[in-house]
């Protein structure tokens, strides 16, 4: 083989992997940009790199140094927690009913869960704004924190149902029969066998739900009134120049999430590997 042939063989063997790594780099490029510009000693707007005085750590030393930024982050986290908790509970119940029970209108129930996922966010946002403004204000509900929470529970719900449903459907029904056969009544069968086995699905549904809620902008923008979440803060401040603190916080969230995922995977794989 000539060197050229060797090279061609080497590339053709790895071409898929090379493309894959290129796509991953493409996915990370903006994150790297966000990271780099968190050290920018920008003057008016953090769009162009200012070589004078950059890189600087001043934004990292004072991440809350811009008015409203940490408040909006706090709002996002609180909304995320409440919405995740509620959507996970409601969605898990729905998933159990849809998978485990035969009842009239099961098809309609599945449809009702599916259609919100097939509806663009802007339509969800628009419809929620309409009913909040024209209907709910009559009972004293103002646009703000709670309308965001209500809306987020709604759009996270379908994703929870789908995730938990998938887990439930992949569960071997013979496991529950085995439990019943081994003297467990309905209640202990559920708590000793069904629930522990579905739990990983519920956990990933909750994580999915939190990240959807945390990163949502379009629906939030419609129903938030004067309340600001972190994505909304960034979007609104874009018009007058995003502070580098947004980059600091955005990149930190990324690091925290990656660390959590890595720790979770390590614990998960350790649990799976032989203990003795």
């Amino acid at each position: 083989m000539t060197t050229g042939q060797k090279l061609r063989f080497w590339i053709s063997e790895r071409i898929v992997m090379i493309i894959a790594v290129a796509v991953l780099l493409y996915l990370f490029l903006p994150v790297a940009y966000t990271f780099a510009f968190s050290f920018n000693n920008y003057r008016k707007s953090n769009i162009a790199w200012n070589p004078e005085g950059s890189p600087t750590l001043k934004h990292w030393q004072d991440p809350c140094g811009v008015e409203g930024i940490c408040e909006s982050l706090g709002t996002s986290i609180r909304v995320g927690f409440i919405a995740t908790l509620a959507a996970t509970i409601l969605g898990t119940m729905l998933a159990f009913a849809l998978v485990r029970h035969k009842f009239k209108g099961r098809g309609a129930g599945n449809m009702l869960v599916f259609i919100p996922m097939a509806t663009p966010e802007i339509v969800l946002g628009a419809s929620l704004l309409t009913i909040f403004v024209q209907g709910f204000t009559r009972i004293g509900l103002k646009l703000g924190f709670w309308t965001i929470v209500l809306a987020h529970i709604m759009f996270c719900l379908s994703f929870v149902v789908v995730t938990v449903k998938a887990r439930l459907q992949s569960l071997d029904p013979r496991l529950e029969e085995a439990a019943e056969d081994l003297y467990a009544d309905a209640r202990s069968t559920f708590w000793r066998v069904t629930f522990p086995l579905v739990l990983p699905g519920i956990v990933s549904a909750a994580l999915l739900s939190f990240s959807l809620s945390f990163d949502d902008f379009i629906i939030t923008n419609f129903v938030s009134g004067n309340e600001s979440t972190f994505p909304k803060f960034v979007y609104v401040s874009y018009l007058r120049g995003i502070p580098a603190q947004a980059n600091v916080i955005g990149f930190s969230m990324f690091v925290i999430a990656v660390l959590l995922v890595v720790v979770g995977q390590v614990i998960g794989s350790r649990r799976r590997s032989p203990s003795s």
Binding site: P30, V31, V234, M253, V258, V261
Partner: peptide, 22 residues
């Protein structure tokens, strides 16, 4: 897998703005 999911956690507005810069 982590690499695919991770960029999600930097707000998508921030990443879109980064694209504007790029």
């Amino acid at each position: 897998m982590i690499c695919v999911i991770a960029p999600f956690f930097t707000s998508f507005i921030l990443r879109t703005i980064a694209w504007r810069q790029i």
